[in-house]
Design a binder for these strands. Sequence first.
RNA 1: GGUGAUGUAGCUCAGCUGGUUAGAGCGCGGCAUUCAUAAUGCUGAGGUCGGUGGUUCAAGUCCACCCAUCACCA
Length: 678
Amino acid sequence: MSDKKRQILVTSALPYANGAIHLGHMLEYIQTDIWARFQRAQGHECYFAWADDAHGTPVMLWARSEGKSPEELIDMMNEEHKTDFRDFGVSFDNYSSTHSEYNREQVEKIYHRLDEAGYIERRNIKQLYDEKEGMFLPDRFIRGTCPKCGSEDQYGDSCESCGSTYAPTDLINPRSAISGNAPVLRESEHYFVRLSDFEQRLKDWMGSGALQPEIANKMQEWFTDGLRDWDISRDAPYFGFLIPGTEDKYFYVWVDAPVGYVASFRELCEREGLDFDAWWEPGSTAEVYHFIGKDIVYFHTLFWPAMLMGARMRTPTAVYAHGFLTVGGAKMSKSRGTFIRARTYLDHLHPDYLRYYFAAKLGPGTGDIDLNLEDFVARVNSDVVGKVVNIASRCAGFIQRNFDGMLAQQLPQPELYDSFIEQRQTIAADFEGRNYQSAVRRIMALADEANRYIDNEKPWQQIKQEGMEAHVQAVCTQGINLFRVLITYLAPILPFTLHKAGEFLGRDLQQWQALDQALLGVKINTFQPLLTRIDPVKIKAMIEDSKESLQPATATGNEPASQPAEEDLTDEITIEEFLKVDLRIALITAAEAVPEADKLLKLSLDIGGESRTVFAGIKSAYDPAELVGRHTVMVANLKPRKMRFGTSEGMVLAAGPGGSDLFLLQPDEGATPGMRVT
RNA sequence: GGUGAUGUAGCUCAGCUGGUUAGAGCGCGGCAUUCAUAAUGCUGAGGUCGGUGGUUCAAGUCCACCCAUCACCA
């Protein structure tokens, strides 16, 4: 704990405005929130401000497909996101959108300053253009054959098959992922920030302790390769901010996204009367911290500080990256039901459970965090309910029943209380260093000690002995005071439970400073269960819901079916059994022959928001080219099967004996990808 | 392909600058206890520290290579 009051601004990365919040997002927001709450509990002035990332091509296309304006959609998502955060106890001070006038103002200010200082360069580049859609194509919206390994249907920037990276213009047979047309090369003027101008300053910043060691290591790579200019413009049509002085050039979404941190804080300043400049002028003594995922380190440790330097603003005090969330040791999967939305979680489980579990596993590094559901139940039930909350529970009854809720005037073992208080600095240092797992370990060790103390004193026996009443009262007062220390330490992690504990003890428990005085001779309220155990049934229900909430996102098909011409009917099944087979309408977005196999075609299927790769044994009957664009039916929940050429994630349906007599199923006009077939 | 990271008991994880019999929690076995939301205390059994080869008097801890997983490559 520092005795000086610090001024701190923390941010989380901006979630994209076209989708729901899921538990992967929540890992970061909970990490950030714990840190912010911790700082406030130390008495510091700490704000948490961030926003939706609303700009870019995906939102534009989404709006187009919904037949709505982007504004309408992002406003809706913004509300939804905020509700999710609040219900998870995320104590943000402001949540905005990058599509705001505050942001426009900041973006333009930064741009003008960069331009005036000569950091912006304009030059023509050639880019692939979709004539049918009338737009330049982002790399991700171009598909084609990998120039290195020849794999078909790869993205414009890298090949998922061989992993090589290249320019979209290197692709063989490029195609627009939007219209399917072959794009043409067209010239356009783009705006660049000369990053190399900032190389030395970035190195200095990096050396100032702003980064975790592994991130600093990673950055060496960028410097070694030499900093390239950064293209900050995009051509119309685009959903974003127009670059001042142009008619059809927009800022690239990664320009205005981080500026969103500043703009959101600006908005907060106006509302709360804070001095914006005191936080963002160079040399500011306020601290600014960005919490981000390891995937966007690049933008936050190169572009962002460079932009701030060029715009004569202060740079972040530090950027902290965390790892990814896996569920059950694997990437979150929609078909397995482990792609869990924040809302779905909240429908079934208490937010403090997850906050505790994440805290118990988060360290200062960038390693991935696994949500193991059995471990989750065991850990939360044992630690929070069985150990911590139980301390209050087992003492409260005596105080209530025998002493009318009054605590004793003195602690029987003040030295035990003091030993708990002595851990304050150590635990604070853990929180400060984002080593929450270490803090949690220490706190739980103290909880064990508190339980041991009560066990040794055996108040349930003493209360039966004549003349021991006062001692029982003292012992339970001691227990409740130890509980109070523990729950105060856990305050940043368990805001809801803390609130209930505050009602029980009749006071606010957030400030760590308040622990200097033990609670003595005061009346406390009737104990209500602060947090109950997790019922594993609810976990199951949550997983089931997660499967259901994803209509348009499930499996793919794999082996094509080449059946003998005539077969006896198989045994009869019930409707329930049939419903286990999840059949979906699929759009064939790409098809190619597998050279090493005589029967297989590799199909890419779109089942409404999710893409599947399926190896189908229909090579003998279909030419890959004629399949692209067709709709068919696939088994979407078939267990993925590893094949020599890759993993087949489902199976398409076809009839016929085989050879050239194979007939792929096709739905009537009107069926769209992802529809369930029943 | 390049780069960064991760790989320690059934599960989830600690192990700082190399040094006595590798630690914790959960789970599991035994005992005790009944105040508490079946919670608590004591105790026991579990690991050739991803693999191979090095450096060293000494390596989970350093080096090289390999394997697996995650991320990034503007």
